[in-house]
Amino acid sequence: MSSAIEVSDLWKIYQNGKQQLPLDDVEKLEQLKESGEIVIAVREVSFNVEPGEVFVVMGLSGSGKSTLIRCLLRLVEPTRGSIIINENDVTSMNQKDLTFFRRQEASMIFQHYGLLPHRTVIDNVAFGLKLKGISKEERYSKAREMLDTVGLQGWEEYYPGSLSGGMRQRVGIARALVADPPVLLMDEPFSGLDPLIRREMQDELVKLQQSMNKTIFFVTHDLDEGMTLGDRMAVMKDGKFVQVGKPEEVLADPADDYVARFVQDKKKQIEMADKERSKKDEELSRNVS
């Protein structure tokens, strides 16, 4: 079976003017970058995500994560490279196919929720279905079901403005799930939430994922979150993937200094926890004897 997401040699360069970019001439690109005329937000990124896999992209602020995830839906137009999602060649689609693709194949969940403030919760959840032209009864019944799933029954008629951050993101998740797309794209969905709620939402996502088995592309800058959720993770720096692997692999064997610094706190935490545990074990065995 083919991969759910196949990305090869993806580049995104932001530029001020419209001049032709010397894409094959790396030195010239570097010069332009140094002079501040262009920003290379994503460079030479290639990866595959298998169906049902949770693929986490991690990196510091400005490393290009949001740009990358937006390229997958062509909310940001890639400068170069190819993106294939569920055998749809996203990069070569015309506007009409692209619109259809966005309605059908992949839904996005945003850090700042992106809800419509003038629409009720249920209308927000049903938004994608409305765009598809589905009748009111059908979209409301589906939306209601989804609101139950994310634990928001009874909030249908409220407006997003009166909801807490956590609840807003639940609306965002319900909106993404209601069309039942095979792929979910999540751009730091829990970053704006306070730690307790974030934890709760992560756990719920894990639980949901067990039953729905989506392909999830998850962006975060929080290593803990990446480790809990990810089947595999990629570490991104200055637009590039510097390491891709299972979370344990990345932790055990960082590819370079950047990754090492990224994971060192986590490593220490784990070592501390291990020590603590072995100490306790020792005490326990001593007490028993």
Binding site: L73, T99, F100, R102, S107, M108, F110, L116, K130, L131
Partner: peptide
Amino acid sequence: SEVEEAALAYGATRWQLLKEARLPL
């Protein structure tokens, strides 16, 4: 722009974007 982006991400056409999100806002 967040609201517009979300509308586009869910497959709004230009006209739908105007009617469903931009004009009401």
